[in-house]
Design a protein around this nucleic acid. Structure first.
Lengths: 274, 274
DNA sequence: CGATTATTTTCACTGAATGAAAGTGGTGGT
DNA sequence: ACCACCACTTTCATTCAGTGAAAATAATCG
């Protein structure tokens, strides 16, 4: 009869179903076979099968390309397309992104913070395809890896920033980002200038520039970022980009709803508005 | 007792949870209160609450902007970002879309068929923002409304096309599309030319051009579409666009996996591989 | 074709899910 | 300040949805 509040039970069909969905998401578009799913979600096969059938009935899962495989379905895509829009950021940001992309003909990214990560929620392509660290829309990067992500980290309150840095440093190092000293310098630099242009050159020749987006209470909620190449990032363009990004970011922040609990700190996961 | 196979039960926590997710998706980014959710999903409040809590624990649902509201969470967005990629179409299509967008500086859309509808699964913006019928990524249009959607419909086998037309005509008419005669003419015209440029002028001044994407078996699976304005659609540009779209669509189709069961006909919704 | 491995069905059991009812908290009217 | 109202939350006895071992069936491979 443990009434432990944080008893993150892995039982209940619902949690199991979500585990299956996660397993399918982790797999590619070719899908997974029942056995793989059962193993990945740590479920007996009959149970996995029953859940898959139900999900399939709901359209969230569909048959994969090769016979007897399963993958995430179109309905799930449609359903979730309207998710991940905290403070209406996606809608508010779209026009700004288009303007920036049109002005510089480079790719523009919109990232929101989620715990220790930043999630890419929108993108507007420029003339040349730029590879983003997050992979595609919906992808995550640890805060501190890449310009947008670093712009967010640099704008967090000191305590929170410290916690995130401590948590993410191993990940950042592992993925070829900055060392601790360089990262801390970059954070200070970003905070001072109001934009981030550290070349944590993960993709050789690539670079970018990002600014934090703050709501009206001053809390960082997102970042607006440009991805480009080193040679296109001339001093003049850099200045113009920084100026425009800051202007657009301010406009987005002003328009966003300040009363948004999505800025939950990573540590405190159970604040009830009691 | 009842062993009715098609007993699409609305019971089972899973189905109930999905009903709740659907309700939340239908609501805007401001979220819904418990009472509204319970009503929308046709569930008693305690049940709805319990499910919401579990979903929230999984990150699929989060607190809304105003106190005591719920909305779809970021995790759902991340999860589903990798869904809706039948035949790997999204990945295969991306480079083609970028090329087309760069060539004409107009917005490019990638639509896949889903039953009686077409779903927008990707978009690459041009210089001027074009409003798409589907709203945003993840949005649906009935087949036969808009160029991309019509390109798909025109390429279906006769019987299937007929069924879809009969099913969708009321919807199309209601939403300001073509009348039956005009639609049928447009379908023939599209099939003959290999691309669709009917100006079912839903958005005045807007127009576009679309081609079907067929897999190697010849089945239509998607459409590649350009959205532009009437004055930008000069005869020369139209010809160049049609040529390029057809070339790119053919390349995508050749690269796609032909053994994909996603081309399920709208009628047969319960084909079990027994 | 037979051996192996994956999928699916069956079924007796059980605890997860249920929802009526009671309790708590917050909001607005006077 | 008070009360009346409505929304949210907790409790708990009931029961049926979910479970998974085992067996049957189907696919795969050498």
């Amino acid at each position: 009869m443990g009434k432990v509040p944080a008893a993150e039970g892995r039982d209940g069909v619902l949690s199991r179903a979500v585990a299956i969905l996660r397993a399918l998401a982790a797999a590619g578009p070719d899908g997974l076979r029942l056995s793989d799913i059962a193993e990945a979600a740590d479920l007996p096969k009959p149970t996995a099968l029953r859940i898959l059938r139900t999900l399939q009935g709901e359209g969230l899962v569909e048959d994969g390309p090769l016979g007897r495989t399963y993958r995430l379905g179109l309905d799930l895509f449609c359903l979730a397309a309207r998710a991940g829009n905290p403070s209406n950021l996606r809608d508010l940001g779209r026009p700004a992104m288009l303007r920036v992309a049109a002005a510089f003909e480079d790719t523009v990214f919109l990232l929101v913070r989620s715990g220790y990560d930043a999630v890419l929620i929108d993108r507007s392509e420029g003339v040349l395809p730029v590879r983003s660290l997050t992979g595609d829309i919906g992808g995550k990067v640890p805060l501190g890896l890449g310009q947008g992500s670093t712009a967010i980290l640099a704008s967090l309150p000191a305590g929170e920033q410290e916690e995130v840095v401590r948590h993410n440093l191993p990940l950042i190092r592992e993925r070829g980002g900055l060392e601790e000293t360089a990262l801390r310098t970059a954070l200070l630099d970003t905070a001072r200038k109001g934009y981030c242009d550290v070349a944590n050159g993960l993709i050789p020749g690539s670079s970018g520039l990002a600014v934090p987006i703050r709501d009206r209470t001053g809390q960082v909620i997102a970042a607006l970022s440009i991805g480009t190449t080193l040679e296109r990032l001339t001093p003049e363009r850099r200045a113009a980009m920084a100026e425009m990004l800051q202007r657009e970011a301010a406009a987005i922040g002003d328009a966003s709803n300040p009363f948004d609990p999505t800025l939950r700190r990573p540590g405190a996961s159970m604040q009830r508005a009691g």
